[in-house]
Write a protein that binds this DNA or RNA. Structure first.
Lengths: 199, 199
DNA sequence: ATGTCAAGACGGACCGTCTCGTCTCGTAGT
DNA sequence: ACTACGAGACGAGACGGTCCGTCTTGACAT
């Protein structure tokens, strides 16, 4: 019968936590996710390895929390999407912005790594949906709901399905590098999705 | 100026090649992709490590070829999709079959691993598209083209886009485990896609 | 006292390279 | 035709590294 003694979070060093986050982010952008080791993170952060193993299950978990800490710091009100009343124009704006974001090299490496881990790690996937994807999707669904009330989208449409139709093709094309991500492509996805869900 | 001497494929041992494929497949199903090492493959196959390093760039490449060898062996004419003249019924049949396939545990582990590698390895991604996804997509596009000629799909529809709209949501939902994969879901995707591309 | 901390030693797994000696070829000399 | 030779792939495994995850130590905080 193992005891599985758990660490006491109240006594945790916030300083070490932040140093580990910072070191993790720096190392990833310097050498790439795959080449980052726990040892290297500890060394750069001036932390003991045990401090990392005590609080995280895996490298992926450390990396995830590192970026989560960043995104929580920089995000407050921007959770509201534009609502001009014209769902087509609003969606095209947002989708074009996503396409632009995906073209940013700084964005590319960590997100690819995160997605690769998520595929094989159900726990991480759940955490990702809850902490990162979830809030963003809620905002998008709020905008879609507004369009639904305005009669621009079928009243019985499943909004999760709308989001999947909108984003999954874009996402897959980017991950698989199976085609170019252009503003025209973004527009086409919006047009097709709106047609599919037209009242 | 480095010489980069390349091995001569004519002198390659087919016996070793097959033994390595077999060992790779066995090990993956026994201990999982992540826990398979090149050393273990070589040992099980009765091959020298150098024989593997000579012919493959990475573990992912070995694994990829191992499954490619399998699929090439077992695939002949089945590249033709059903064509009853009713594109909706035909697509639903195929999509439901895909959903069923994705529920198979034997199918799950290797495909997840392959997708994770593909995300971070552009070379592997290109090879995947060319050798595995490509032929299948061609068959699907052939069926869609037939529907296009029959006026069931808009004449100016981009068939690659049709496939993306059909499969990307399904694929993403499976990879991210973000929802259930039911026959009803498969049907819904077909209905929506056909509506989006209606003439 | 108790528990976290930084530092780092430790045994073990694999990595990717390399060095052996063996085996199988194609080729050139007899 | 027969044989000697060299090139190159082969199995085996030694080698120096890196990183893993655990464990130990002594300092420090509560």
């Amino acid at each position: 019968m193992s005891i599985a003694r758990k660490p006491n979070p109240a006594r945790r060093s916030e300083q070490s936590r932040q140093a580990i986050f910072k070191a993790t982010r720096e190392l990833i952008s310097e050498v790439g996710y795959a080449n980052v080791s726990i040892e290297a993170i500890a060394a750069r952060a001036g932390a003991g390895k045990q401090t990392i193993y005590r609080w995280w299950r895996s490298k992926a978990a450390v990396v995830f929390d590192s970026f989560l800490a960043l995104s929580e710091a920089g995000r407050q009100e921007e959770m509201m999407l534009p609502d001009t009343g014209d769902i087509e124009a609003d969606l095209k704006l947002v989708m074009r912005a996503t396409v632009t974001e995906f073209a940013d090299p700084d964005f590319e490496a960590p997100i690819r790594a995160l997605n690769a881990e998520i595929i094989n790690d159900p726990d991480l996937a759940a955490q990702y949906r809850e902490k990162l994807a979830g809030p963003v999707e809620e905002a998008k669904k709020a905008r879609l709901c507004s369009a639904q009330r305005a009669g621009q989208i079928a009243a019985d449409a499943d909004l999760d399905l709308v989001l999947e139709l909108l984003y999954a093709p874009l996402y897959q094309r980017w991950l698989h590098r199976s085609g170019p991500l252009t503003p025209e492509y973004a527009d086409a996805l919006v047009d097709l999705t709106l047609k599919a869900f037209r009242p």
